[in-house]
Design a protein around this nucleic acid. Sequence first.
DNA 1: TTTT
DNA 2: TTTT
Lengths: 158, 158, 158, 158
Amino acid sequence: MLNRVVLIGRLTQDPELRYTNSGTAVASFGLAVDRPRPNQAGERETDFINIVVWQKQAELCAQYLHKGRLAAVDGRLQIRTYENREGQKVRVAEVVAETVRFLDRGDQSASAGPTAPAARPAPAAAPESRRAPAPRFEDDPFADDSQMIDISDDDLPF
Amino acid sequence: MLNRVVLIGRLTQDPELRYTNSGTAVASFGLAVDRPRPNQAGERETDFINIVVWQKQAELCAQYLHKGRLAAVDGRLQIRTYENREGQKVRVAEVVAETVRFLDRGDQSASAGPTAPAARPAPAAAPESRRAPAPRFEDDPFADDSQMIDISDDDLPF
Amino acid sequence: MLNRVVLIGRLTQDPELRYTNSGTAVASFGLAVDRPRPNQAGERETDFINIVVWQKQAELCAQYLHKGRLAAVDGRLQIRTYENREGQKVRVAEVVAETVRFLDRGDQSASAGPTAPAARPAPAAAPESRRAPAPRFEDDPFADDSQMIDISDDDLPF
Amino acid sequence: MLNRVVLIGRLTQDPELRYTNSGTAVASFGLAVDRPRPNQAGERETDFINIVVWQKQAELCAQYLHKGRLAAVDGRLQIRTYENREGQKVRVAEVVAETVRFLDRGDQSASAGPTAPAARPAPAAAPESRRAPAPRFEDDPFADDSQMIDISDDDLPF
DNA sequence: TTTT
DNA sequence: TTTT
């Protein structure tokens, strides 16, 4: 009915850019979001949250965001269920970003979100040269639990 | 740095009320949050999200909320990590509610959140009679993955 | 950079539906959002907040929402500046809704927001018969301060 | 019922720090929040939004935030009504911050919000030396419309 | 201008 | 009243 998430944190890794079968861009990265531990002055707790971004935003994130950078994410919490290789159902939480803002420097470089012009490029336009190096699943920090290995177009959130 | 979640959905079960060792109330329940599946008119997708509430709110939820009821949750996304019986690290996502509003009827009965008077009762005040029936872990729908079985006071988010 | 507002409250009036010169639908209504007055048990304070909705959402609001109904608004806070008849600059705050959910009954009737199919009808499609009764400015509760009398297409938030 | 606002923007002025009669700190400042103007590539629109912060947060903002700095505000939208010198009712919108995060540099210096230890100092503890220079109403950028000149303790949001 |  |  209503599902809104806003986060500010630092990337735990460089965004991983991939493409669906029909050529739509998807990027994913981890975000470290910390908060004070109340009643334990000075101590902080950190949540490591998986972020997924689609389309033009995905490509902008892959281009401009890097490990350690500060970013704001405005999106929706999604619980995805899949079966792992042992046949068990696993639930993964991730925030599907509607907008990602780059906060560290050159804030103007931040991408514009879903209402921006050209936010929906022809999906098939993903150049072959770009798709080649993308799915390096071996070192994909999400691969294990987020199972994005075979991103179906059914997963498109738009 | 900043972590804000707002959800509206329906309870997938009655809230489960428990108490920490020092007597602080904690309630947990599932929330079904649906959304339209774009480009597939009429179809809807549902996210099942675990909610955790503390203190007076917990007791109000246990008292007034039930399976199927509509509720609004304002809180924070938390990724909790624990080791399961096979020694594997498991990550669970849950929304720690700051405020829960009851939306179905008698909206006035909704609890008031952290700024309300009396929001922080003496934890030890949890009556023995109340604590007795609480930890029915066998049929706790969260027990398996949220591992709240032994709620330590270190988990208190306040 | 980031501007997100989520409100739940009751309509203080029936939505007022109008059309821009190019035929885009706009609806506006007041929302009474109350909260507990802390340290004054039982007392509540109310904020009266102006909501603006565009396009298909506007028409759904005009059709299904009425004075007194409970609604959730997810949108953006906008401060609009205009000159009044005395030539003074006046600032009006309003929340431009991205999504409006109807919470009282038939929650399924709620509109789907910007990602829904058919969310962007050809603006010129606004039938003449519909436009006729719309701009009853005499009894428009917002007319005075929000100056929507002559809604220019420059105000379109999309 | 529910009222949540999250903003990221730049201060349009240094925070103005004052104290209520009973010694509670209040700071106010303007925040410039911009967004892309869709369909007008490259152009941006800016909302100038008044922020109010209380207690320890107020003092931290006054100390660390300055004109031009980037900040994130998590709070609640409040519409305050007062009578101006001509006896007309005026409505002012402001966001009452629950948390303010400093985003430009030294993010660790950011204050912790309402759950932080020592967030609620004895109000009377405001040192006389501090209160002296505070209410410079002549050059208060908000004085005119926000009428904070005589902050009553009735305005305390806690 | 004000909703339950 | 306006920030980069």
